[in-house]
Design a protein around this nucleic acid. Structure first.
Lengths: 208, 208
DNA sequence: GTTGGTGGTAATCGAATGATTACAAATGGC
DNA sequence: GCCATTTGTAATCATTCGATTACCACCAAC
């Protein structure tokens, strides 16, 4: 007897499926953290079976590392695009122009819900013997880009990274949930997201 | 027959024991995160049995909330002390004096290994229906202190919080582990911890 | 001395989870 | 058409973990 529902006949190339699973994993890891995320939750979010996601990456740990690599690569690509934008505006862009261009692209990254949160989750795993070194390498890549490619001074890079950590933290906290109820929260978010607030608030209502 | 090792005869008041367990839980939650921490690991770190820590707080979730409350209370106390220090130096302290005094006490907090990391872990749990609201309230308490008591402008409070998030992230990453090997890391840490670097590096070598 | 409350532990349970195995259905080259 | 490869799933396993239960030991009051 057949125990499974009849196949719909549609099969994907594993390459495409892998991207789907990676996107789902990014969302799940971002929301629940490395330890809190389950391979089953990722599987359900991607619409595949749990053993499939395990075999696709070998282990949950390897899957997280893949998510991390993709996340930092996409962030770097976003920064590089921002750098080109700002050099297009003026030959030797000042710090403010660069900041504005990067901030613009950075908030765009928030659309990929979980990407920045997955990075942030990795940054809290420095004690992990496998993930820790990879996470430190990610931070290093970003810092070296800011110094070597974007031409920032150490102090400028520090300020830029600090603001980024703050943004990520506020997103992790879901601080926007209290925007209407708490005047202090409104004031803080108005300060931190001067131009991108409508976009941030629109993110809040999306699924999950 | 007796299955247990003979009691050493030393018994503690549950109040004192509770503090010991809270300190142990702070370390464990800080290192492994909420989901990654186990009640058994907390029990072993505190030198008691696992059922005891569960009964003491009712649940792992309640224990985390207790850790969170203690952490934010101690941080606020540290900030209040710093505020008094700076007003002792000059009647109406400028921003730099206040920053310096707070930074001094803040780095002291790092001695309580895990306190800031536990806070940071909570900040990544905004999606949790129970912990999320509590974590947002913690952030709000800190922001309102900076605005109302420390007299910071929204922009000043934003900058201060951003730097704090950056410090916490670098500690979570264990970035100091790469201080000697990676020149970029050395440069970054020299910039972020201008005066407190020896202290930071000494923390690195402590147990766990 | 015994009694009752406080400070603990050993043993165990049920559920969740990451991983493995065995198997089935679709696809493509020949 | 046939067969090997690829794309998937159902079933299950061994651990782990939070929680519960039942029990024991110390101590103070009377």
């Amino acid at each position: 007897m057949t125990t499974t529902a009849p196949d719909t006949g549609t099969r994907m190339r594993s390459e495409d499926r892998r991207v789907l699973v990676l996107e789902a994993a990014t969302r799940v890891f971002g929301e629940r953290g490395y330890h809190g995320a389950t391979t089953d939750a990722v599987a359900k979010a991607a619409g595949v079976s749990q053993p499939y996601v395990v075999r696709m990456f070998g282990s949950k740990e390897a899957m997280f590392l893949a998510v991390l690599e993709r996340a930092v690569s996409r962030m770097m690509a976003s920064f590089r695009a921002a750098l080109e934008e700002s050099t297009a505006e003026s030959e030797t862009p000042d710090a403010e122009t660069l900041h504005r261009c990067i901030a613009h692209n950075y908030v765009e990254l928030l659309s990929d819900r979980g990407l920045l949160l997955s990075l942030m989750q990795a940054f809290m795993l420095g004690a992990d013997p496998v993930i820790g070194p990879e996470a430190r390498a990610c931070m290093r890549r970003v810092y070296e880009f800011l110094r070597d490619d974007a031409g920032m001074s150490p102090a400028e890079a520090h300020g830029f990274l600090s603001t980024g950590m703050m943004l990520n933290t506020l997103v992790g906290l879901r601080m926007a949930d209290d925007y209407e109820k708490e005047p202090a929260v409104r004031e803080l978010l108005d300060e931190v997201f001067p131009t991108k607030l409508p976009f941030l608030l629109s993110l809040r209502d999306r699924q999950s």
